[in-house]
Design a protein around this nucleic acid. Structure first.
Lengths: 356, 356
DNA sequence: TGTTAGCACTCCCCTTCATCGAGTGCTAAT
DNA sequence: ATTAGCACTCGATGAAGGGGAGTGCTAACA
């Protein structure tokens, strides 16, 4: 069942008004608001139809209408087709040199939440598909070895390995060469148990110790970095009465504190992303990947730093979120991120990242 | 003005009851509750006195009494003198081997919040007063050097240094020796600009590059690790009506999200700690180090891993917090941490920490 | 002199009730 | 197809009133 042009206009008018006020919208309001000069009665008739079709609903009889999830969905899809305009308010914030990735991400989250008045999250880029760039074992004391592993994108992992017996310098040097020749240039996924096994054989079955060390290195490489997620503006939810009753607020805050649920969003987003072209996804109410946010809308954008590192930005707010603004803001920010990152890369990255 | 024994008993009874119920306590309740068999009228008289002295107050005429900050303070001070009993419920959780410090801390925060039903925070130990254990520069490509710095307690910092020109292996080796002989065993505070300058001179004024590298290392060492703070159970505040109205909740949540304020608490705590013997501090209402928590109480404990690394644990809840339980829980946990850490150390630390 | 019973009083909270107004659905006229 | 009009619904608002918990004070009692 298609919407007529007029129904569309009315629906849009209802949603926009509701986004502003957060209160049910009546027919009279619309009849005054819209360009098509119609009486409230006519609007009422159309509204009845729209309700029947599931785009809007009444909180109770004889109240105005509010958009249903389906209504928002229509609005968003409709909006997405729109040409995008520029939003460059936050350029300065990003360009302000922040030489540590962590700082940049925190700043982005912060500026997003401040700008939009919604809660914001951003995940640090995942680098699993990245290549090993450098491995080094160094002895630190008699029975400890420090392993340093650098991945493309200059992300560093560390591991302190306890050795059951002393390993002399020469052996260590050999090990270093062995590790680098075998592993350099491989992506983390490409390194299998077989690779590890092969190295052990090449090392000769000198001793338990060597084998242990190689295993430890392998583990350190594989060690699943848990997704770093930065958030900001969770308190913004208190600006929206429909989210700030005790129960709901508690749920949302919990989600923000135990990053677990947020990372679910990230995974979900990255998964869906391949099928989408735009890079922006909107989850409305029940569509949300996580249960705790079923009364919210979540808008996500994927950003990609050009070494194949992908991360996700998310905005969480009430269903009556200003989708238009949020989408534009996200588009702008991912753009900025691209620029920033490229500049950074050419200039050489002074900063470094969290290692594991 | 001293409290009579009976007044004390009554005050304690009022506070305890209020902790339970969260509602103003009337004279009749107390007259039934307490051992000293007194009529409500007598209690009323005493209550009037207690109110005059500022230990309790009435939300409004003809309501029961609630403790004032001063009242809580009395309760807490009184309590502190108490002998401590054991609380060992959370032993298991801690003993569950979690070999990464970060994991342990998160777990502690979690178990604290679950156990107490308040919000919990824990700061990772600061290691400023710790000694450098190991420094290593390695070349990674033509114009990049990786600096690895290990501090006692096996905390690792990394820095990638961009060099304006190639540094050959021999020079690098010399630099490594130079750095280690000069800096090893020094604590971070002890390393001054003078130390750096001295090294530069020893290196000979070979070139800009060397000097740059030394500077970069110096910076990396000094780089102020911002206090890592883990939190859990912020949502618990919603269990207490007096904290969960919009404004208050928003303030508290903000404090929890922007760790800034929490780290203020940590600093304040560590500062005050020297003067205290018990290691446990209680901030009631307005006493709180941070403004956002003026309606809460904050109980902190300092834990010390035996290399001089200190961290802070904090419980944040309503003023009618179960101080008794919280204090005991904190005492127990710091004890556990001690045990855990010592065991960990002897066994060798498998895990490693965030590097910078 | 300390304790207690009794009583009038205060003030919050809850329920009830009536009113108001925004908004609806329906019908009949245009 | 549109609109004016009207009866109706239902939440929100506020006033009124009863109930109850608790107080302060006074007078009696041990």
């Amino acid at each position: 069942m298609e919407l007529s042009g007029r129904q569309e206009t009315i629906l849009l008018a209802i949603i926009k008004t509701y986004l502003d006020t957060g209160e049910p919208v009546g027919s009279r309001t619309i009849s005054k608001y819209t360009d098509l000069n119609l009486s409230s009665a006519t609007i009422r008739n159309e509204m009845a139809d729209l309700e029947e079709m599931g785009y809007i609903m009444q909180p109770h009889t004889s109240a105005g209408r509010i958009p249903s999830d389906k209504g928002y969905r229509f609005y968003v899809d409709h909006l997405m087709a729109d040409k995008e305009r520029e939003v460059d308010e936050m350029k300065e914030i990003l360009i302000e040199k922040a030489d540590k990735m962590e700082q940049v991400l925190k700043q982005i989250a912060k500026s997003l939440s401040v700008n939009t008045n919604y809660a914001a999250m951003i995940s640090a880029p995942r680098y699993h598909q990245n290549k090993l760039k450098f491995i080094q074992l160094s002895r630190m004391g008699d029975d400890q070895i420090v392993a340093v592993i650098v991945v493309e994108g200059n992300i560093i992992k560390n591991e302190i390995i306890e050795t059951s017996q002393f390993i002399d310098d020469e052996t260590l040097l050999k090990l270093n060469i062995l590790l680098n020749t075998n592993l350099n240039g491989l992506s983390i996924e490409e390194i299998s148990l077989g690779t590890i096994q092969k190295m052990k054989e090449q090392a000769g079955i000198h001793s338990e110790v060597i084998s242990d060390v190689i295993d430890a290195v392998g583990q350190a490489i594989k060690a699943d970095e848990d997704l770093e997620i930065y958030t900001s503006g969770a308190n913004n939810i208190f600006k929206y009465p429909e989210l700030s009753d005790n129960e709901r607020a508690s749920e949302i805050i919990t989600a923000f504190e135990e990053k677990k649920q947020l990372s679910d969003i990230v995974y979900e987003t990255l998964q869906n992303q391949d099928e989408e072209s735009t890079g922006i996804q909107v989850y409305i109410g029940e569509e949300s990947p996580v249960q705790n946010m079923k009364d919210c809308s979540v808008v996500t954008a994927t950003y990609e730093l050009d070494e194949g590192m992908k991360g996700t930005i998310g905005i969480i707010g009430p269903k009556r979120m200003d989708y238009d603004k949020v989408v534009k803001t996200l588009k702008s920010i991912t753009g900025q991120l691209d620029v920033l990152y490229k500049k950074d890369r050419n200039k050489g990255q002074k900063g470094n990242r969290k290692s594991k």
